[in-house]
Amino acid sequence: MNLFRLGGDLAHLVSIFILLQKITANKSAAGISIKTQILYSIVYVTRYIDVFTKWISLYTFVMKLIFIASSFYTVWLMHNTYKSTQNPQIDTFKIRYLIGGSIIMAAIFNHKLTFNELVWSFSIWLESVAILPQLFMLQRTGEAENITVHYIFALGIYRALYIPNWVYRWIFDQYFDYIATVAGIIQTLIYSDFFYVYYQRVMKGKKFELP
C-alpha cells in the first residue's frame, strides 16, 4: 500500500458518499445517469467475483463489499424510491456498445484464458468507460448541480491517483499490470475534458456550465 493508492481508494469512498448524500438529501436522482450506475454494479460484481474465495487483506475485503453493496443500493434507490426524478429522456447513451466492446477487449487482452481472469479483464475495460453515459448526460444538459460534478470529480481523482500508484509499484515493488495501467490511463483521459471545465468553473466558485 502506498499513499497514492490509499488516496485513490479514499476518493472513491468519498465519491460514493457524495452521490448517496445527494440522492437521499435532495430526495432526487436528477442529473445522475442510472446507466453509469448500472455499469459500475456490473464492474464491481465481475471484478470482485472472488471476494469470498480469495483472501488478500481485511482492507480489500471490506472495501470490495462496500463497493458492491453501495453500487447496488444506488441503482435500487434510483430505480425504486426516486424513479420519478430520473431523466430517462437525456440518459440515452447506448451502453450495449460499452459492454460489447469490453467483452471484445477482455477476449483480446487478458492474463490467462480462465473464467476469473476474463471477467476481471472485462471489469477493468468496462470501468474505463463506465462514466461515459454520465458525462454524455452532462453534455446534453450543459450544466449541473455542483454536488453532481463533485461526485464525478472525486471518482475521476480516484482513477487518476492510481496512475502514480502504478508508477510507484513499478519502481519499488517490481509490480506492473499492463491491462490495469492502460485501461486506467484511458479512463483518466476520458475525464480530462471534465477536469478542465471543473477547474475553470467550479474551483473558481462558479456554476458548472459547459462552454
Binding site: R5, D9, H12, I56, S57, T60, M63, K64, F67, H111, W120, Y162, N165, Q174, Y175, F176, D177, A180
Partner: peptide, 10 residues
C-alpha cells in the same frame, strides 16, 4: 513479471 500480477488492487 506477469506472475507478479495478483489483482490485489481495488
Amino acid at each position: 513479471q506477469s506472475t507478479k500480477v495478483k489483482h490485489d488492487e481495488l
